[in-house]
Design a protein around this nucleic acid. Structure first.
Lengths: 249, 249
DNA sequence: AAACTCTACCCGCAAAATCATGCAACAGAA
DNA sequence: TTCTGTTGCATGATTTTGCGGGTAGAGTTT
């Protein structure tokens, strides 16, 4: 295995898990501990990670004081992301919205995946770009500073010209009566266009947001094909959604 | 086996596997290691792949090394950015390319500025978004992992529909004979479209890149309205450009 | 708290692989 | 022919890697 390749893999792992143990790494890559230590030392010198006794930490992990962007309920969102990532197969075209849950999805993509992701969220695009083998397509238009996604007629036009296999939406509110709802007009328009442009709709949300609703309607429950939360499909609160014909992951 | 043929095969393999070992390659193709090294070196110079000790990596793979904290010649780029920022007035529409120099420009914008920035570079858009009062428009299309800007026909179409006041290009090479040149086909097409779509062209470059050229032509020197480097207009090396009718900042 | 153990760390070394360079041979085109 | 571009080889330099020996840290036991 090439040195640079190893270091790239290390960085990918660091970005994914926020920490790594050198012992695990050298087993995994089949090199001596010295080599691994040297790799970590080099990456640390370059400021790409922070070396500690026995392994290394992600830079963002220790800078948590500077970046107040502590994602709410991140552990749950990581679970959701892993489950959702398993739906994506090689060669697929995937439309995704923005939001912290989708951002976790972008981090959880398996390294070998070869798919095309289409997205209007700038932070998410940036995360996709860290992946070694996927293609990224940006939806262009004016950026909404509120939600940090591109919004407007041009964006919707671009989405309309797409026919994707999957659409992943991070949803802010979903309930049996109102379906999927949100509170930002521009974002709702974009999400509706994305649903129209995809064959299957996958909704991602933490369980806390279930059974709540907001003023603007995105789509009915019947339009949702798959629902992904941190809970198991057997959990009682998922029962009504299963009965509504939705696949629960 | 022909040289071109070999290199085409190498590129194909790189795109397929994201990495190759030089030893494997020269066995497979029946050439000496020197020849293989030279091939890889050439492809690396063309930016088609990244050569590392023992083989080569796909550009996307090694790109995991995201956002290098060490920008080459950053101090000079900050000087350039300050000078360039003074050209932008309230209400203007500004097209910008990507690159680290433009990124510095995005950081150097005065806080009160009210203008609209149109851009296809993801890191730069992110930087623009930190500004309190400017509007940001993203040019959408497939993301080139090489340059981290959106490239392609769709992007060029979107640019064509714009008529901006200013166009800021970070240029990689400029000289008296060849004008502005670069080495990435997709990027060149985007930059040409941007120049067409703007009333004034401002080129930003560190002095080190002046009086050099690359294979692909972007525009003639006569098309450049303003040239910004870290040097003063009175510096002797700027003299030829002044004589060519370019305003030097 | 002191002693002990275990792991991880640092340092220098040497072997192997890989690289850069200059040079000569060779083939094809003008 | 003459020129240009390509290839292989020899040489010495550089990089990478694993190993041994000594040291430092962290946790545990006494």
């Amino acid at each position: 295995m090439l040195k640079r390749e190893r270091q790239a893999i290390i960085l990918h792992k660091i970005n994914l898990h926020n920490k790594i143990l050198s012992t695990e790494l050298c087993k995994e890559m089949g090199v001596s501990e010295d080599t691994m230590r040297r790799d970590l030392q080099e990456l640390s010198d370059q400021g790409k990670l922070i070396k500690v006794h026995g392994g290394a930490l992600s830079h963002s992990f220790s800078q948590v004081n500077f970046m107040p962007s502590t994602v709410y309920s991140q552990a749950n969102k990581a679970i959701i992301a892993r489950k959702a990532a398993s739906l994506i197969k090689d060669g697929m075209f995937v439309l995704t919205s923005g939001g912290t849950t989708i951002l976790e999805l972008a981090r959880a993509l398996p390294p070998g995946l070869k798919a095309t992701f289409i997205c209007g969220s700038i932070p998410t695009v940036l995360e996709y770009m860290k992946h070694p083998s996927i293609d990224v397509v940006v939806i262009g238009d004016k950026v909404s500073k509120n939600s940090r996604i591109t919004v407007g007629a041009e964006a919707i036009n671009q989405i309309r010209r797409i026919k994707a296999d999957l659409c992943f939406l991070g949803v802010n509110a979903i309930d049996l009566q109102h379906g999927v709802t949100d509170n930002d007009w521009d974002v709702v328009m974009i999400k509706r266009a994305m649903i129209e442009a995809s064959q299957k709709l996958v909704c991602l949300t933490i369980a806390e947001k279930m059974n709540s609703f907001q003023p603007l309607h995105i789509c009915d429950l019947a339009d949702v094909d798959i629902l992904v939360t941190e809970l198991d499909a057997s959990h009682p609160s998922m029962q009504p959604y299963l009965e509504a014909g939705i696949q629960v992951l």
